[in-house]
């Protein structure tokens, strides 16, 4: 007598009549439902991420930010960084859509997981680019702002630096938390399965 998995294999073929069966109507209805696949969620969240950073720029554009920049003589620096930033955003968006289009459910499992992770990493790189860019321009802008202030306000300057630093830390902290919560739960299982497949190749 066969045992273990081979016994199950013998019985496996005979189970067809015991399987549930959905009617064609039920199948039609299922196709009308919305997918909850992780790729769909990665897509939605990524688009929101792009919009968030673009929105942040629009907000700063309509604020008094430009006047401050002019006052502390950073107009040229600001314009150059703005152009670089826009070019990078466009580059990232193009890359993201290319990667997203490359996700193909009929690839083998390993390739599929790889392309999902790659797409996700593109947006992750984009967000980190923005954070680092933000930190650098924040530091430079504040350096010139402090320089612009008169020297006898030393106590105020240190308070200002501390304040700026705390704001930056909170911002980066929130971003990391956001990643842990949103993506941690979203692709934890996918990551685990991908590692399992990769381990097989060792």
């Amino acid at each position: 007598m066969a045992e273990g998995l081979d016994l199950l294999k013998e019985q496996w073929k005979k189970q067809n009549k015991n399987l549930p069966k959905y009617s064609k109507d039920e199948l039609y209805q299922m196709l009308q439902k919305k997918s909850t696949s992780i790729v769909k969620w990665i897509f939605i969240i990524s688009i929101l991420e792009f919009l968030f950073w673009i929105g942040l720029e629009v907000v700063s554009y309509f604020n008094d930010f430009n006047a401050i920049i002019d006052e502390i003589n950073l107009t040229y620096f600001y314009r150059v960084t703005l152009v670089i930033n826009h070019l990078v955003i466009i580059g990232f968006i193009i890359l993201f859509f290319k990667r997203y289009k490359n996700i193909n459910v009929t690839d083998n499992a390993k390739e599929l997981m790889k392309s999902i992770i790659k797409t996700r990493n593109t947006v992750k790189a984009y967000v980190w680019f923005n954070v680092i860019f933000f930190i650098i321009s924040f530091i430079i802008t504040n350096y010139f702002t402090i320089k612009h202030l008169s020297i006898d306000q030393e106590g105020f300057i240190w308070g200002f630096i501390a304040g700026v630093f705390i704001v930056m830390l909170i911002f980066v902290g929130l971003l990391l938390l956001f990643y842990r919560i949103i993506y941690g739960t979203l692709i934890k299982r996918l990551h685990k399965n991908y590692q399992q497949l990769k381990k097989l190749e060792l």
């Binding site: 909850t36 696949s37 992780i38 790729v39 969620w41 459910v105 009929t106 690839d107 083998n108 499992a109 599929l112 997981m113 999902i116 979203l186 299982r189 996918l190 399965n193």
Partner: peptide
Amino acid sequence: TWMYRVALNTAISLYRK
């Protein structure tokens, strides 16, 4: 055959429990 691939991919890569 095609179905096996898409279905298994969904189970191990796309589906969120």
